[in-house]
Every structure is written in C-alpha cells, then in structure tokens.
Design a binder for these strands. Structure first.
Lengths: 362, 362
DNA sequence: ATGAAAGCGCTAACAC
DNA sequence: GTGTTAGCGCTTTCAT
C-alpha cells in the first residue's frame, strides 16, 4: 500500500484557497529545512540563523502559509485566549469597556472570546463553562453580585486566573485573593451626592436597577446613604426599577406627587438617568429647573445630550484595559503573582447640565 | 524505563482543579471502555448502547471531565467558531446586533470571536487575518464600504463563507455571489424623508458621517435625493461630519444662519441625530417646534429620550440573528448553497417626537 | 456495539 | 543551528 497520507480525513477541497491547506510541514519542505526549524522561525527566531529564517519566510510567503493557531494552542497547553464576560453590550458602559479590553489584549497578542450574561447568574455559569471548554487562559468578567457568586466560587476552586471589572472586592479581608478593577463605587457615589447637597438639595431620591443584579448599585446606594447621613438628611428608600426600558413614569409620578417630593434624583447608572429625565419631562417637569438628576457611569452619550448629563464618571475603557493588564501580569508572572487586590481607578464628578440648585431651597 | 507518559511537557499542576487535567482517555479508563467509545458517547450517542453511555457519563461526572474543544476542533477540521467583525460597539446599533448574533449562534452550538474595525479598512484586513488564523468556519461582518473592500475581495478569493450585516449588496448583478442581511437602505431612507415632506418640510438638510467610512450612509443619502427629486425639492449637499462626538454646533449654525435655513434635518444615524439635536438646542432652537430631526437606526435609546427620536427603524438584533442563520445554512448545506443574495429585512418609520410640521410652512 | 490506531498542525525536549 | 521525535486531546475510519 502506497504511503498515502491524510487518508482518514475527508479530502480537502483542492482549490486555490491560499493558506487553507498549507501546513508548516509544507513550508519546511519548500524551504528545505526540518519542521522544527520552520516552527522556530516563527516562535523563537533568535534560535535560527538569519539566512535560514529568510528562506523559510520566503517559502511561507510563496505558499501563502497561514499558521493554524489551533495546533499551536493544543500543543502549547495555553491558548492565549482571554474569555470576557460582560452583562450586556446594550449598556454603553460595557461597550466602552470592551474597547479598552480589545485594544490592550490585541496589543499583547492575546485573543478574545466574548459572552454576555444579561445579569443572570444561571447564564453566567453556563457561559463561563463554555469559556472554560475553550481553554481560555484566564478571564475578565463582570458578575451580577461578586459577594454571592456561584461562578466566582467555581473559578476560585479551579484556580482559573481572572480579574473582575466593575465589581469591587472589599479592600480589607479581600475574599480569596480576588482581583478587581473598578472605581470606588461607594466613595464616588458619596461625592456625587455631596455635590447635590452642596447645590442646595435636601431631599434626594435614589433610582436604581435591581440590587440583586448589581452589587455596584448597592454600593452606590451605600455611598448615597453616607452622604445623606453625614449631613443629617433623610435617607430615602431606593426605588428599584426592574429595567430602564419601559416608561417608569408611574413610579416617578408617585414620588413627585407625595407631599415630600424630592428636588433631586440620584440614579445608579446613566441609562436609568436618561430614562428618568424623560419621565420627568413627560410629567411636565423641567430638568434641571424643577428637578435635578445625577447619573453614574459617564457614558459618552451623556455628554452629547442637552443639557449634558451630570454624572459620576468612570474611566470605562481604562477599566477594561487595566483588567486585561492585570490578568496578563498574573498569567505571565513567573512567581504566582501578588495577592488579591482591588485596583481603584480615579473617578470624576461632572456636575453640570442636569443638576442645578433646587427651585425653592429648603 | 517505566512507561512514563507526558514526559515531554511541563508537569501539570497536580492540583485538584476539576476538569483541567482530565482527558477523555481518563474517562474511558474509569468507565472501562475504549477512548473511541467514550468519544462516541458525546459526539454520536446513537452509536453506543444506553448502558455503556450511562457508565461513561457517570465517570465523566465523577472526574469532572471537561471536554477540550481544541482537540476536537483540530481533528475535525472545523472549529464551529464564527468570526464577527463590527465597526464598533460604541454605536448601539452594533451592540444591539451583537445580541442577536450571540443568541442565535449559541443556540446553534457555535462559538464567537468578536473583533472591531473602527471603520478602518487597514484594521479590517488585520483583524480578518487574525480571525482566519483561528480557523473560524465563517464570518459575519460589517465592512466600511462593501463596494470597495480589500477584505471582501480576499475573502472571496479564499472562498471563506461569510455574510454581510448592514452592508447591502446590490439586488441585481450581485457581486461575486455575496450574501448580505440588511434593510433596504435607500428605500427606507426615501420613505423617511417622504414622511418629512408629508409633514410639510420643503428644505431638508442631510447630516452624515464620512461617506467613505460607510456605504450605508451613501445609500441613505441617495434615498433622500430620490424623495426630494420626486417632489421637485432641492437636493442639498450633505454635511459630512468627521464624527459625532465633538460638538458640531459651528457647522449646524452656519447652516441655520444661511438665508435658506432648513426646517428639517435627516441624519444618517441616530447617534448623529442626538448630537444634532443637542447642537440645535445650544443654538437656542427647539426641536421639533423650530426644527425637525429625523434619525436612522432605531436604537433603543431613541425611544427613551424625550421627545422620542423620530427615526427609520432597523431590526438590529434580527439583522444579527439572520446573518448568523444564513451563514449556518451555508456552512451546513450539503450542496454548496444557493447563490449570492441580499436579504432585506423590514424597516419601519417612526415619525413622532422630534418631527412635526415646520414652524412656517413654505 | 466496541476497540485499535492513525493523525489533525504544531511545539519542545533531546540529540547531534 | 538544525533535525528527530513524541505527543497535546480528540474524532474517525476500519476491523471485529
């Protein structure tokens, strides 16, 4: 029987698709070197003589060789793929974050696999398992609630390297050495509310998404409470909206119609804030003349609308970039890297546009 | 010498990380079946006896076996990964589209690899090469300009299956059998502008991004021109803004200050429209009372603001879902699938909020 | 219905 | 510096 190679597999289309069938072995053959040498030319060029490398490169070029990353990954036992799990891209916060993630990962020669969880813990588990099957080297993720997360517990148990983005691990007694990159949610929210108070507001309501779906929202509410208490002002119960899509005018109206209508709203994210502003307008109220609104996130769109959205600004792309940076450091560190750490990036308070002094100071 | 396996590779951490080191061979051993049988249990269950399958599943469970997709992919010569290239996620249009893409790809058991091109043809080429190295089975992509695209030419040359999203291939004389999923940009834009005309507008300006970065923008402008000509109205030169981020108030002001100020603006995308509305407000003009604004895209945010953004609505998630659907059909079709085809999804015109009759009808 | 064995494309010891 | 060789984890003929 003649030495027919590749007999077991379905015959490849013998078409002129460059690179599709050309393997490193073909290149080696054409360059009259061994497979090993050809491989080295690409992965460890310093180990091979200049002239040889040249020949290999020429052959590769001529044959339109395209390395099959799968083979390399399988053999190398590392994929150089980073799994990314974000709640949703429909919120610009995460879309902006992705930009930072993609840019720094690509720059470092890493690939990305993106999944979204839609703030749903069950889906988080499913998607993470999926990433794990792809043998991602590590992950950057935002979970619904880092303080009660099946998926993080699992990742810890399996010692999968990961860095949280937006979720903020507690500064002291850091849980299981977790890493996170975020702003200081509580402090920054507190500063934002302080600015509201400084503008003369005394009665400030908080509008938030579901606390269970976002530990950030809880932390930001805590920051609000800090600020209010520090000034001896009443901490109002948060209004937890199920979503920011439908009109929540009814709930807003109820708040405004009560005898003690707030003069300002602190919304735990910008999308919510934009929705609330619209609801207020539909109620015939003017922002900020009748009511002030402060958001949180600093999405680019907020600066685009008129009046501009007052908000607590997070460096979203930076959060993504830093998360990748820290992950890579952990992945490539020879000693098992430093311990768990919460990296806090600087925030900024943007008070303008939708925030002004209250109509009739208390 | 004892039969030491795995001698060549760096020793794995002998930790209790479930699934990380357990291979199918281990499972087979534990279940007392051959590797082949174990494999079949997962990929072709109907070929194996129920009882045997049961044993294998138990063993897999017990050992926390996690299949290594890399091995499977390498062997199978297909990755079940789809490459996705979008211009940017910062525009909600594409973020919404991603939702449709992810949902339908996951449902069909495919994985995704996302890259963004930032409307830059050079980066398009680079990112596509990257996807190709990962041996994606096919791609869903939006290119800057489908009628002049290095990257599409390359894909055609290499017969890589792909489906365009948003880019619309011409209905007749379809180029090289390309597939696309989009709305009918020209017709829908024409209808949108017709609605403006029906509302009483005679002088309508077009605000657009760079035409070179978006064939859609060109097609939409053509739709505008169709509508204007059909009514014997003047086709104004488009105002091409470099971006939608900075304030373009200066250019808007120039337009409004000219003797022949437009009473309505047609913006080729919603983000632009939102920016223009803000610019107009800063100029002291009220929308829609003084000037009407019509957008294009139908991003969710447009319905959230007050007044709601009048716009030409595309089914963004559906576009993504359909693109995946068509791609899968091509990938899995036994005969090399039907010929190039432009799938047109239905659009809708939402005239409300930012569009009304002009202040003083011409 | 099950097993034995070849090999996907590539890398990294280990020799020379 | 370069070649030889043994796999990475899996699927799939082919034989039984």
């Amino acid at each position: 029987m003649p030495a027919t190679r590749r007999a077991a597999l379905p015959p490849r289309l013998a078409s002129a698709e460059p690179g599709q069938g050309v393997t490193l072995a073909d290149v080696a053959l054409a360059a009259k070197v061994s497979l090993a040498t050809a491989s080295r030319v690409f992965s460890h060029p310093q180990l091979v003589r200049e002239a040889t490398a040249q020949r290999v490169h020429e052959a590769a070029q001529r044959l339109s060789f395209r390395p099959n990353l799968l083979g390399a990954k399988l053999r190398a036992q590392r994929t150089r793929i980073i799994g990314v799990m974000l709640p949703t891209l429909d919120n610009a916060v995460f879309a902006e974050c992705w930009r930072g993630i993609e840019e720094s990962a690509m720059a470092a020669g890493y690939s990305l696999m993106l999944v979204t969880s839609n703030y749903d813990p069950a889906r988080e588990t499913e998607r993470v398992e999926y990433l794990l099957r792809h043998r991602v080297d590590g992950m950057v993720l935002t979970v619904a609630d880092a303080s009660d997360s099946t998926v993080l517990d699992q990742l810890d148990r399996e010692s999968v390297p990961y860095v949280l983005a937006y979720n903020q691990v507690p500064a002291e007694g850091a849980v299981a050495g977790r890493h996170s990159v975020s702003v200081d949610n509580r402090t920054s929210a507190c500063e934002g509310v302080n600015a509201l108070i400084a503008a003369g507001h005394r009665r400030i309501a908080v509008i938030s998404g579901a606390f269970t779906a976002s530990d950030r929202a809880r932390q930001r509410f805590a920051g609000y409470a800090d600020a209010m208490r520090a000034h001896g002002l009443p901490v109002l119960d948060p209004v937890n909206l199920p979503s920011h899509t439908a009109s929540n005018a009814a709930q807003i109206r109820a708040l405004m119609d009560g005898g003690q209508a707030p003069t300002a709203f602190f919304c735990t994210n910008d999308l919510l804030a934009i929705g609330v502003i619209s609801d207020l307008k539909r109620l015939g109220l003017r922002v900020p003349r009748d009511v002030s609104v402060l958001g949180y996130d600093g999405i680019a769109l907020g600066a685009l609308v008129e009046p501009p959205l007052a908000t607590v600004v997070q460096p979203n792309a930076d959060i993504g970039a830093h998360a990748i940076g820290e992950l890579l450091q952990r992945l490539e560190a020879v000693p098992p890297a430093a311990n768990g750490h919460a990296t806090l990036l600087p925030h900024a308070i943007r008070i303008e546009g939708t925030v002004s002094a209250p109509a009739m100071p208390a």
